[in-house]
Structures are given as C-alpha cells and as structure tokens.
Design a protein around this nucleic acid. Sequence first.
DNA 1: ACTGTTGATGACAGCGCTGTCACGTTTCCT
DNA 2: AGGAAACGTGACAGCGCTGTCATCAACAGT
Lengths: 337, 337
Amino acid sequence: MAVRVRIEDVAEVAGVSMKTVSRVLNREPNVREDTRLRVQSAVDALKYKPHPSARSLAGHKSFLIALLYDNPSANYLMEIMAGVLAACETEQYNMMMCPLDFNSPNFMDAVESMIGHSQPDGLILTPPITDAPELLTRLAELGLAFASISPINQGTCMGVAMNETRAAFDMVQHLAGLGHRRIAHIKGHVAHGASDWRLNGYCEGLEQAGLKFDPVLVVDGEFSFDSGVRGAERLLALKKRPTAVFAANDDMAAGVIRVALERGLRVPEDLSVSGFDDTPMSRQIFPALTTVRQPSRDMGRIAALELLASIHKREAGRMLRVPYTLELRRSTGPAPA
Amino acid sequence: MAVRVRIEDVAEVAGVSMKTVSRVLNREPNVREDTRLRVQSAVDALKYKPHPSARSLAGHKSFLIALLYDNPSANYLMEIMAGVLAACETEQYNMMMCPLDFNSPNFMDAVESMIGHSQPDGLILTPPITDAPELLTRLAELGLAFASISPINQGTCMGVAMNETRAAFDMVQHLAGLGHRRIAHIKGHVAHGASDWRLNGYCEGLEQAGLKFDPVLVVDGEFSFDSGVRGAERLLALKKRPTAVFAANDDMAAGVIRVALERGLRVPEDLSVSGFDDTPMSRQIFPALTTVRQPSRDMGRIAALELLASIHKREAGRMLRVPYTLELRRSTGPAPA
DNA sequence: ACTGTTGATGACAGCGCTGTCACGTTTCCT
DNA sequence: AGGAAACGTGACAGCGCTGTCATCAACAGT
C-alpha cells in the first residue's frame, strides 16, 4: 500500500503552512483567492485525501450520521438509505445503519450504546422511531441534532414529511369517482403516525364524497401482508361486502388481492383494491396495484441535507414537505353495477 | 453533553497505566488475570467507550469494512447487510454501504475514491462486483482484504457461497417428479455467475430425469420482473408450450405468473412456476411461489466474520459453504394430463 | 502620521489512543 | 545456583489533523 499523502506534503508543495491547507479544505474564510487556488492544485496533483480519523480527533466531530430504523420494509429503507447516502457523499460525511428494536425494553440502552461507541454528529430518525418521546428528550439533553422522516409531531422538529392525509383523501376520491359506495379501509400499525393520517384522509374522503363512515368497513392491520390477509378475510365475509378496499399500505393491499383471488373474486371487476407506498411489488403483482407514490429517496436526501446544514450552522433546521403522486393502475376500476 | 471518559481516567481508577488498559481492551496477551479484572471493572464502572477515531489514528486501522454492491434487490441487500452488521457488532467494527455502478466507466475510480476517503480495513463484495477482474487485481496490489459472497471463482478467494447448481438441480427434480416433461428455464443476468450455475443445474436436472435439453425452452432474462414477463411471453407463445417454468429468480417467476394469469392460464393447474431466492414477495403473490431459499443473512454474517478474522490474523480466510432449502409452495403442481 | 481594525497566514499544542521499547520480575533450563 | 528466556507493566512518542493564538500586512478613520 502506497504511503499516505499528508497535509504537510500538500502544504510543502503549495508553499504554505498546514493550517492554510486545512483552511482551504474546510472552506474556512480568510484565505486569499490565489492561495486557495495554489493549495487546491497541490491537493489535486497529490490526490490528497484527508485522514478521516485525524480530522475527527482534532476537530471534535465524527463526520458521521446514523440512520435509525425499525422497519420491516426493505424497499422503503433502501430508498431512504440511498437518499441519505447521496447527501452524505456531497457533504463528505459517512452514514451508519442502526437497526433497532423499537419495542424492546432495551431500546434506549441500545441507542445510548450506539451513540457512545460511534459518536455520530447527528441522527436520522425513521418511523416509528421518530415518535419515541424518551428518545427525543434524551437527544435534547445530549444536544445531539436529528432529522425526522414522517414524524407524528411535525411542529417541533426538523425533517421531512408528506401530506399523507391529503394523499389518502385523494385515493378515496378516486374510488368514489369510480362509483364505489362501500369503500373499506385496512388500518396501518398503531405505532405509526402514518396509520392515523391515512385513516383520517379516508374519513375526510368519505365525507367529501357524501358517503357515511361505517365502522364495520374499517379493520385493524399492522402493515404486514398477513395482516392484510386477515383484514380482507373479515371484510369479504361481510354480508354486505365492500366493492373497494383502500389498504394503508401496499403489502396489506397485496394480501387483499390474494384473498380476493382465492375466493374467486375478480380484481378490479368485483373488487377494487388500492394501497399506499408504491413498492416495486405493487407493479409486479397481478393486477398491478393502484397506490400512492411516496418519494422516499428524496425524503432521505432532503432530511440528511437539512440535518447536515443544521450541524454546520449550529441552528435548528426546518420541517420540509415533499409531494406525492397517485399511481393509478389496474387494481381499481368502476364499481360493479 | 457530558465530558468524555478517557482511557487515562480508567487507568487511574484501576491503578495501572493507560497502556495496560489498552491491552485489556484489545485483548492483548501478557496481562495478569487479576489486573485484567481490575481494569475491566473500572471500565464498567466508568462506562468507558474508547474513542473510535483516536483508536484508528494511533492504531493505523479504521475499524471499518465496506459493503460494495450494485444490486437492485432491496431484500437481498438488506439481508446481507443485516448479517454483516451483526458480525460487525460483535467485533466492534463499523460497516459502510457503498452503492456502485458496476457498468459505469468510472467504476474503478469510484472504488478508489471510496477507499481513499474511508480507508476501510476490508471489503465485502456482492455479485456481480465479486467478479470484476480489474477490481480484484487492484485490491491485491493494495493488500486490501476482501470477502466475496457468491463469487464465480470460488477457488481463489475468501468468502461464502451456496451450491446453487445443486439447488437448481433439485428444483428441476421436483418438477420432473411432478410429471413435467417440458420444463422451461428463464436465465438470469449474464453478468452474474449465479445465472450460469442455475442454468447448469437446470441442464443436469433434465439429464438426471431423462429429459433432453431443448434450446427453445431456454430464454434470456436479466433477473428483473420485466425480463420475466418478456421471457414468459415467448415461452407461452410456443406451439408446444412448456408445462413448467423454472425462472432463475423470484422476480422473473413473478413475471411468468403475471403473464400466465393474464392469458387465462391457471397456476399451477395449467402451468407450474418456480423461482429462486425466496424473496418476501414470493410468499405474497398468488399463488405463493415454489422457490429456493438462500440464507442471505447468514451469508452476510459469515462473510463478515471470516473477513474480520482474516484481518486480525493477517492471513487468508476460507471459502465457506451454506446450505439451501427448497420451499415448496402453491405455484408448482402435477403436470396437466 | 498614528492608532484601530480587519484580513491572511503560520507556529504549535494537543485531540485520545496504540506502537515501541525499556525495565523489573518471574520462570525455566542446565 | 546462575544465566536465559518469558512475562507483566509503564513511559513516552507520535498517528494526522484542527483549534487557538500570535504575527504581520493592509487599510480605514481621525
């Protein structure tokens, strides 16, 4: 392995002190333009890369942000992660993945331990970890910056979110527009704020369409395929069956389609089904699923950029909004006569 | 934020020198048992965590391994990642994710840049990055350790693999055992060794069953759902249709099922379909897919453990084997009469 | 012209740890 | 018993950077 180029070598080539090179590298002020250029070309010529550990040690920063998650959806997570990674790349930061068990009694210990070991400069929180009061309190105590993705309480923190209520509202409008009068809903996991938003959007959508809320048509779910299957079994066993089911996510919607097909119902002729999230699977099942596309990758990137900006400027960041889109596919159609 | 506990503080409490604490922490030899215990209890009492950057800087190690990938399958990657992460946790290492574009002309530059910036102590390679000769050569030059997951050339490197040929063979046996005589295959992406292994297993399986290889029944694919759709369209348009399709992965198998259902064929009554990988989706589509389960998480963990062991011992690691299992589900059944 | 302020730069300590080497003590061998 | 080897421990330098402070030049205001 070739000997490492150090900042001293760059300084010598550029004819300045180490400290000036350091200033250029860290975009600090008070460097003359020609000096900056001279240093920059020395850096390029030597292909110099600062040693991350030395930077961290001397600068009291880890150049690390941690992505905390407890989410079974690989696709969602990979998208968020890709976005965070993209942001880190431009900002010369590193990202570490932190799988956690949100319901474990050792949840806080696990977080503390990870923070103690890795010393991240900031955290990205994903649902449902966004909504652990104990964690938020502790982070405030530690003075550790964090950005939340789709947190329940969007008033008080930095991060990114989508208007999920509005998206669910639009979805119900879509179904009502196709003539459906008995539109069911399978709720998401209780620990997730998204479940409430989507349920609220469902209710508001019904109201807007002049349909009255029927508690029989709303069943519990927990975002898993199996819970979608169970929900569908209850809904399709009703004497007055719904003609459309809006599931709070795609996995559950897939469960509904499965049950419908098993019972000999045609989708969408006999039953329309829609989901939420636009997972890759939603395009692969038959029929392809009508769903709400959430720009997860952008959300990851935006949350990370905002977090990093707030770390640099040492001030609170904003809560940003991203748009959704309805993906109308084959699983929804006109209500049966 | 509380003031950091340093190794010096631990040394003072334990009544030894910093260096002895360091020895205990790094499990170095030549420390008396009672000294070790005394130090350990001081560490526990103070909740001391070594500063990672200081360790790296002084010890000329980064305590970092990088997971390189260019793989569209989120599930596969998350499983591998979870395994690697688990291994890292026990060994006090960190992992960084490195998405790469294997086909980009800048592939090597991207790798070099990442290595330069992050200085990992080792790499985990996933297909198809396992098989880039230029990369392997360069890593040898750099003396950088790496473990490969399912590489084509398993003779010369450390890592982990499964007998995919044998698994494909078994799958074809399963289909032949159900009475199928016209068994088709949709190949995987040409850049992946797995495609060849699975094709070979298919051929061997046919031979074992006394069926002769028919080139018409083997079509190209590239592991994507869409390529499965295209393959199925070709196969199902044949005058003498196959009664079973063994796709080289689950996504393509899902594509086959989609096309079959669209054409009014029943699965498995009219067409049996099987895949490979056991993605979560394989259980969620209708009918649930017969497939080969690959213990990806274990593979990630084993590869990482072997890599870390080889880094510590400074010697070459082994190529390890993991077992597969056939998951027989509803998408395969007796051949039509 | 004289002081005060800002800008541009460098000297140097020190971040928290490990590698190296030196030293005293114990154990082993003949 | 005497020397060699192994063991257990500590002192201290230094890993490659950045923070702090000192320094000097340039320029503004009186």
